[in-house]
Design a protein around this nucleic acid. Structure first.
Length: 331
RNA sequence: GCCGAGGUAGCUCAGUGGUAGAGCAAAGGACUGAAAAUCCUUGUGUCGAGAGUCCGAUUCUCUCCCUCGGCA
């Protein structure tokens, strides 16, 4: 039952490994990649940045190149002898987005399949992972920096008013007190006249979605341990290096959130070590909680998500999935 | 031992003669080109203990206990 050799009955599938921070996604994804001739496609909104390694939880590795299915040379990241994609793809000052991620990741996914490998989507940015799996098409309105700057200081009420003038229907369903939501809605409505309905095109076929879900006690312990390990192994140097050698402004570093936010302040002498540590830990726990909330919601709309705890759970479900799939055929 | 300031939600503290709130934490939720971001909802606790005054005390008085300063 645990055969690692592909039989003719096995069908190609994409493994998806999600879960909160510090739940052990990377280790499982890498192990699955070795087991099933796979390549990892990262869905992590921070590991895309070069030079942010420790605090983003990158597994040790190096940048390398490979030849894709069309014969082109492409970049990848190699960790534990496994190819990883969507890691170290942009400079930290680059503004990236979920839409860009989905577009690029779809191409990479197709290429992995074309080369006969098993794609393993792995990441903690559930928004990105779900959008990729479901093939979400975002309104094709890129961010408008000057509009955003102009709206930045307006009250939610004023923003809502503006949105009502453009798209009253959408104004009824947005979060009326969330500036980020309101500004994006105004941005889209200004460009297109109204907010288009969201559509899902080109979802990933035959996904096996595995969700790591350690108990909260265990997770919080792991988060704290990992955080202290980062403090001890050079995250402060990394931040200083990003600022001096990579010329990443301090404000930008703070924008990355979590430890980058607090360690940057600590490195600059604005907060004590104790404050930095306490706040980082608090924010990490909040983050993990939001990831779990997202996962629960996704589960409500997708009954095929499977909760797992170990690598052998993952392998067990992979075997079942590839050998005798439930009727989830394309229609 | 004396003087002073306090003891109210897990923490920091407001507050009132008619049995109490805020922030943070915690829990839950939202999320469609910022997502490690952004935002929403949820607060009954012997108001340190005992006694007294009062129709009624967490609020006033007394005693005690504890904490923190200062003086010895």
């Amino acid at each position: 039952m645990h055969s690692t050799i592909k039989t003719s009955q096995e069908k190609q599938c994409t493994i998806v490994v999600v879960g909160p921070t510090a739940s052990g996604k990377s280790a499982i994804a890498t192990a699955l990649a070795k087991k099933y001739n796979g390549e990892v496609l990262s869905a992590d909104s921070r590991q895309i940045y070069r030079g942010l390694d420790i605090g983003t939880g990158k597994e040790p590795g190096y940048d390398a190149t490979f030849i894709d299915a069309t014969g082109r040379t492409r970049n990848m990241y190699v960790s534990d002898n496994v190819a990883h994609h969507m890691i170290n793809i942009v400079h930290p000052t680059t503004i990236y987005s979920a839409a860009k991620f989905v577009k690029k990741a779809q191409r990479i996914h197709a290429d992995i399949c074309a080369r006969g490998k098993t794609p393993i989507i792995c990441g903690g940015t559930l928004f990105w992972a779900q959008a990729l799996v479901e093939g979400t098409v975002f309104p094709s309105v890129p961010p408008n920096p000057s509009l955003r700057a102009a709206l930045r200081d307006q009250s939610p009420a004023a923003l809502l008013q503006k949105l009502q003038e453009r798209d009253p229907a959408y104004a009824k369903i947005v979060d009326p007190r969330n500036p980020a939501r309101l500004i994006r809605a105004i941005e889209v409505a200004t460009a297109l006249g109204a907010i288009p309905r969201v559509s899902s095109v080109a979802p990933i076929k035959n996904p096996l979605i595995l969700a790591l879900s350690p108990s909260r006690d265990i997770l919080y312990t792991r988060i704290e341990k990992r955080m202290d390990h980062w403090f001890a192994t050079g995250i402060f140097d990394e931040i200083v290096h990003a600022h001096t050698a990579l010329r990443v402004p301090w404000v930008r570093l703070e924008q990355f959130g979590l430890e980058y936010k607090w360690c940057t302040r600590y490195v600059r002498g604005y907060v004590s070590f104790a404050t930095m540590r306490t706040n980082t830990l608090r924010d990490l726990k909040h983050y993990a909680k939001r990831q779990e909330t997202w996962l629960r919601r996704w589960e409500r709309s997708n009954p095929y998500i499977i909760r797992i705890h170990t690598l052998s759970d993952a392998m067990h479900h992979y075997s079942r999935h590839t050998l005798c799939r439930p009727s989830q055929k394309k229609s």
